[in-house]
Structure formats: structure tokens, C-alpha cells
Design a protein around this nucleic acid. Structure first.
Length: 207
DNA sequence: CAGAAGATCCCCT
DNA sequence: GGGGATCTTCTGC
């Protein structure tokens, strides 16, 4: 029962990707708190990984935070309309990260329902309940993770806008590995089994 | 500075 | 399972 610290994140990215499964991601501000259990992750192993934004050692303004030591948030805009939330891993200078692809809602489903569908949780369908956080863009909407939350150190609390991951001891599940989603451009890295899911979880984005 | 691509989602069939 | 929405980011000229 503890908040994951720097030592957790400064390790090899595949290990961190697997061990993040089952942990609880929390976003807490002065106005609200919202949380979800991580059920799907993907490892991005720049600079060698052709699917990673940091492939080949690219260091554009967008990916710069990936060069920080593990434990920082990396949030980028995709398709002009959605955000993707990542956690930087490894030691400073090695630009790797874990994409959080799906969550199971844990706390403040009312806020999630309002942010996703502008409706109260009690008024949404079972389909919409499942759709609250079962994708990288969806969970960012539900968890209020946007540009403002990019480059936050998740190992240090500031009391104003904190993101961190909580280990509540949940371990009763099997891990499944598969190919990452929507990286057709990554050539020989397309089929690397670097996507990890909690087997059978209802909130996994895609079978 | 223009052009193209993109770690997605939603709605339709 | 496929196409459109929508616009940021990066690359090349």
C-alpha cells in the first residue's frame, strides 16, 4: 500500500509496463480527485523502437520530457483532438515511456461520466459505462489529463495538481502480452509483444 | 511555409 | 470493419 516512487519507474520499460497493471492512477487537484485501475499498457523503447516518438534519438520539443528520469508524465496530442497519457521510464537520457491505454474506473465515476458524456453516471448506458475509460484518448478525457498535465513529476507532490500511481495490493490477475495498437508504420517493430493487458478485464480497449 | 501523417474516437453498416 | 472528423507536430523545400 504505497505510492510508486522513483525507483519503481527508473527500471527497464517492459518490467514497468507489466508492473503498472493493477495499480491505481490518481489525478488530484484542489477541486477534485479521480482514479482508475490500470488494465492496459504499452512499452515504447526509444531510441531503437521505430514505433516510439523518440526513435533514432529524436529530440523535438514534444518528446523532450521523455529524456527526463523515470516518473514524469508525457502527454501528447493525437489526431488534433485527443490526448495520450504516458509515464516516462528509465534513467535520465534514455527516452522511453509507458502508454496507459485503458483504466477501470475506481473513484469519482460521476466526474468521469460528466466529462465523457455530459450526463450523470446514473443516466448513462451500460455501453457508455464501459466506454468511460477503455482507450487512451477516452481515459484522458475522463481523468482530466490534458496539456496542463504534461511534464508533471509524479514522484513529487505539489498539492495543486498531482498525478501519481497507488499500489493497493491488487495482484489477483493474469497478464497477457500482444502487439501494440495502431503502429503500422513501425516496420519490424510492428509485431513486438509490448502491449500488456489484464486478461479478461472488461475495460481493455480491444481484444 | 506547405504538405502529410498520426501511440484515436465515433458512428454507421 | 471502415471512413470521416479535426488539427498539432514535424519534415523538407
Amino acid at each position: 500500500m504505497k505510492i510508486l516512487d522513483r525507483d519503481f519507474y527508473i527500471r527497464d520499460t517492459i518490467t514497468v509496463s507489466k508492473e503498472l497493471l493493477g495499480k491505481v492512477l490518481v489525478h488530484k487537484t484542489e477541486d477534485f480527485s479521480v482514479a482508475g485501475r490500470i488494465v492496459e499498457t504499452e512499452a515504447y523503447l526509444g531510441p531503437e523502437d521505430k514505433a516510439a516518438h523518440s526513435y533514432g534519438g529524436r529530440k523535438t520539443p514534444r518528446v523532450e520530457v521523455m529524456y527526463n528520469q523515470g516518473g514524469w508524465s508525457y502527454i501528447f496530442t493525437i489526431y488534433g483532438m485527443y490526448q495520450c497519457f504516458n509515464i516516462v521510464t528509465e534513467k535520465q537520457g534514455l527516452p522511453q515511456a509507458v502508454l496507459i491505454r485503458a483504466l477501470e474506473p475506481v473513484d469519482n465515476v460521476e466526474l468521469m461520466a460528466q466529462r465523457r458524456f455530459s450526463k450523470s453516471y446514473r443516466d448513462i448506458s451500460s455501453r457508455q459505462i464501459k466506454d468511460l475509460t477503455n482507450g487512451p484518448g477516452k481515459l484522458c478525457i475522463a481523468m482530466a489529463l490534458g496539456k496542463e498535465q504534461n511534464k508533471i513529476d509524479m514522484c513529487v507532490k505539489n498539492g495543486m495538481d498531482d498525478i501519481y500511481v497507488w499500489d493497493d495490493g491488487y495482484k489477483d490477475f493474469d497478464i497477457e502480452a500482444s502487439a501494440r495498437i495502431n503502429i503500422d508504420y513501425a516496420e519490424e517493430y510492428v509485431h513486438k509483444p509490448w502491449r500488456f493487458t489484464i486478461k479478461g478485464n472488461k475495460y481493455v480497449s480491444k481484444a
